[in-house]
Amino acid sequence: MAVNEHRPTVADIKFQVKEGSSLSSATFIFGDEDHTLGNALRHVLMQNKEVDFCGYSVPHPSEPKMNLRLQTTGRPALELLKEGLRDLRDLCNILEERVEREIPDAEDEES
């Protein structure tokens, strides 16, 4: 017998722009994402001085969806979203390199 019959729901669309969005202010719908990416991405985007407003929400906890509202000072929101994702990726790279350098391996710790 299966120990675990329940499976988490999977979103059918991974990325989508909500209707009613304009070029410089848009709401993006991320499938299969939650606060993990939402809040981190929101923070990174807010560091960009071309971003006027950025906020995220998870409309319902049982739906695998995350909404991100992005209003810019002029440039297309989609472009800044991509920049934000790249910035977050850069942060991961820097963090990984620091972790690799600064934190001793388990074997070292034992000795």
């Binding site: 991509k82 991961c92 990984e96």
Partner: peptide, 16 residues
């Protein structure tokens, strides 16, 4: 960290 980066990468691909 890799999972977080993977999320960014796959989202960039989706946006593109």
């Amino acid at each position: 960290i890799q999972v977080l980066r993977q999320k960014c990468d796959s989202m960039i691909a989706e946006v593109e």
